[in-house]
Design a binder for these strands. Structure first.
Length: 484
RNA sequence: CGGGGCAUGGCCUAAUUGGCUAAGGCGCAGCGUUUGGGACGCUGAGAUUCCGAGUUCGAGUCUCGGUGCCCCGACCA
């Protein structure tokens, strides 16, 4: 690591929280804003969100999900309708009390999520079994007035997509909720190169108003958990409250079953935390705003300089034609070391160095961001060579993430052991649990850990054992960890 | 919302413990020299010392009130 980096950016290996704050600002992913707890997503950070949208949106549409837009403001009476839902969100609502220069007779809530505003309208749209399933998604912002905020990971306002579907049977709704969960898992693994846990949430962690919540949990290198996406089986809870009904094939009136599912800009925070290193960000090639950068190393004589730039532009053109998002850096006002460090900090997957040496031998130097591996190739084969590096790096990052997840997941057979782990080298701990909320409360108070998920393949009760916390009967092993 | 800390050009810090025109580094702009792992010289722009009141001959420094930010808890995608 360079002296400069040492001085200005905290080391991830020493203080991940300080490192995270520094890198988000320095790499120009985000900036603080005039509004408490809110942040500005800068172009480099927003580009990652755009790739997220470009990837997920077609998957949704293929499944018949249509995009729509519902209003930002929700009448207070509406959000009050589902009691549990209101209770879950009321501490963090932003409320509009004045408009048009006057105090409003009834207030509006800035949406913390859109179930209520959408479902009153769904009630008008749905009359027959022929209208179902109905699948609506919106890409939007929501506001939740969190007490403690953190760039990307927890901000007062954040961007997300929220999918909302309506089905004739609960079985179909569950299928939908699981399909959304599968999309998220696939997205994280194939695009963000992050190995995640997918499972079911405990009662305590279930979404306000849902019957069942499924979630994606990410293992952060410091052993903490980041809830990376959720998908809910709302059953007929909201349908009853908002009086959504349809006539079935027999002409009988029935309440439908619903789901909602979302993934937010929090995902970008996870991406930073999982892959970054002491030198800065490491972008998985598939979502990297810039996949390759050509760093042109200046020459002394003008003729050589001109030749160099022409050569570099030619390479640039080739890479672009090959579909590789490439930038060319000819900023000779900064030293080479400075430029290299800046690109490394931004996590650009491949750095291509072009100087007089490269031209003379027609041998171009490529450097991979994640392992700093150097390789040589000719101007003829550059595109294929870079493509290959990008593919390999994408795969290697996922493998590394899998390894990290495995190493940070342990099993405990007693509460003492559990506590010892949480107090020393924090991690995910898989333990048999009786699934009683009292246990979970106690564990949280004593160790800060909460249940994260019951992994999908462990839902079928298989074991006959005892709860590590209370000693009562337990049949399934849950993952516990300290949440972000 | 409880407990602790901080507030000085865009950023980091200094200012003899209440004393003269608020200093330096980074960054920024201009010119020139440099360029194979965070270069250098010269010149320049940039400040109501968070806000308000008070004490004093005199306040960045002391007192009171307010505001904002950071860290630690409870809440959370």
């Amino acid at each position: 690591m360079s002296d400069f980096t040492k001085k200005t950016i905290a080391k991830k290996s020493e203080d991940i929280a300080a490192w995270y704050n520094d890198i988000v600002l320095r790499a120009e992913l985000a900036d603080y804003s005039a509004v408490k707890g809110s942040m500005i997503i800068r172009p480099y950070g927003y580009a990652i969100w755009e790739y997220t949208q470009k990837t997920l949106d077609p998957w949704f549409k293929e499944d018949g999900v249509e995009n729509a837009y519902f209003p930002l403001l929700i009448p207070y009476e509406l959000i009050e309708k589902e009691k549990e839902h209101l209770e879950g969100f009321s501490p963090e609502l932003a409320v509009v009390t004045h408009a048009g220069g006057k105090k409003l007779t009834s207030n509006y809530v800035v949406r913390p999520t859109s179930e209520t505003i959408m479902y009153r309208t769904f009630a008008e749209w749905i009359h027959s079994y022929r209208d179902l399933p109905m699948k609506i998604n919106q890409w939007c912002n929501v506001v939740r007035w969190e007490k403690r905020t953190y760039p990307f990971l927890r901000t007062s306002e954040f961007l997300w997509q929220e999918g909302h579907t309506v089905h004739t049977t609960e079985l179909e709704a569950i299928g939908m909720a699981l399909k959304a969960l599968e999309w998220y898992k696939r997205f994280y693994e194939e695009y963000f190169a992050i190995s995640v846990y997918a499972g079911i949430k405990s009662k305590r962690e279930t979404f306000a108003g849902a019957k069942t919540t499924y979630a994606i949990e990410m293992v952060i290198p410091d052993g903490k958990a980041l809830q990376a996406a959720t998908s809910h089986n709302l059953s007929d809870n909201f349908a009853n409250v908002f009086d959504i009904s349809f006539l079935d094939e027999q002409g009988k009136k029935q309440h439908p079953f619903q789901t909602s599912w979302g993934l937010s800009t929090r995902s970008i925070g996870g991406l930073v935390l999982v892959h970054g290193d002491d030198n800065g960000l490491v972008m998985p090639p598939k979502v990297a705003p810039v996949q390759a950068v050509i760093v042109v190393i200046g020459a002394k004589e003008e003729a050589a300089q001109t030749k160099l730039q022409t050569y570099a532009m030619e390479i640039h053109k080739q890479l672009i034609a090959h579909g590789i998002r490439t930038k060319i850096d000819t900023d000779f006002s900064h030293s080479l070391g400075y430029r290299i460090n800046e690109w490394e900090m931004r996590g650009v997957p491949v750095r291509i160095e072009i100087g007089s040496k490269e031209i003379d031998k027609d041998s171009i130097t490529c450097v991979r961001r994640d392992n700093f591996e150097k390789s040589q190739t000719s101007s003829e084969t550059i595109s294929e060579h870079v493509s290959e590096i990008l593919t390999t790096m994408q795969a290697d990052l996922l493998t590394k993430s899998e390894k990290n997840k495995r190493e940070l997941t342990v099993e405990a057979t007693s509460y003492d052991e559990f506590k010892k782990i949480m107090n020393s080298k924090r991690s995910f701990i898989r333990v048999p649990w009786c699934e009683n909320a009292v246990c979970e409360e106690k564990v949280k108070k004593e160790t800060k850990a909460t249940s994260r998920v019951l992994e999908l393949d462990r839902i079928k009760k298989t074991e006959s054992t005892t709860c590590v916390f209370c000693g009562k009967k337990a049949s399934r092993k849950w993952l516990f960890a300290q949440a972000y």
